[in-house]
């Protein structure tokens, strides 16, 4: 996992509420058995027209927003199925942070595990960012836990453990292996 410190980029707003994981990835990508790239499958239903051509009305296809690393969105982002593929698709597409009004609990964890920083800001802050010109730069500073743009800085919260994992890119299983004795002990006590 690539460690995250600061992310400076322009943004893509998709401001719907309740964007579910079924919208975030195509059903076909769920049948994948390898750790493939899911970039093309992100927002599959809205990103492409029936002809297969890119839907010019969808913000992800706005040429001015190409290469954006930060997604801005509404309430309850990532609700629905537990598919981590949704977070992988965001990561593979190039998003390193998602700023939402709030997140679904399962998605939030999947996003952390996939190395995509989930940031919760207020409704007003999200709307303000979404309304910025397409070329505006937004900077996310993980150590400081801030989002800065156009002279305004917003603080965000994140659990220190999740923060250190994102900042160092450490694998969870490695970290947990430090607790092997406790796990052994727990199994002994509870058998």
């Amino acid at each position: 996992m690539e460690p995250i410190k600061t992310i400076s980029s322009h943004i893509v707003p998709v401001m719907d509420d309740n964007i579910d994981t079924d919208q975030l990835i195509s059903r076909d990508s769920l049948k994948e058995v390898a750790k493939a790239s899911f970039a093309d499958m992100l927002f599959y239903g809205q990103r492409y027209l029936a002809s297969g051509a890119k839907n010019p009305a969808f913000p992800l296809n706005d040429p001015q927003r190409a290469g954006a690393q930060i997604l801005i969105t509404g309430h309850n982002f990532g609700c629905g199925s537990a598919w981590e593929h949704a977070a992988w698709a965001l990561r593979d597409y190039g998003f390193r942070a998602v700023i939402a009004k709030d997140f679904n609990d399962i998605f939030y964890m999947n996003s952390i595990k996939s190395g995509v920083l989930p940031i919760e800001l207020t409704d007003a802050q999200c709307e303000l960012l979404a309304a910025l010109p397409a070329t505006a730069q937004v900077t996310v500073d993980l150590p400081q836990q801030t989002v800065t743009s156009a002279g305004q800085t917003f603080k965000f919260k994140i659990d220190p453990l999740w923060k250190s994992k994102l900042a160092t890119g450490t694998s969870d299983i490695e970290l947990t292996s430090e607790f092997n004795t406790q796990i052994d002990q727990f199994e002994q006590d509870n058998n």
């Binding site: 981590e84 593929h85 977070a87 399962i106 964890m109 999947n110 595990k113 996939s114 969870d172 299983i173």
Partner: peptide, 10 residues
């Protein structure tokens, strides 16, 4: 509770 694939592996 439901978990993602990284957590399944963990």
């Amino acid at each position: 509770f439901g978990i993602g694939t990284s957590e399944v592996e963990h």
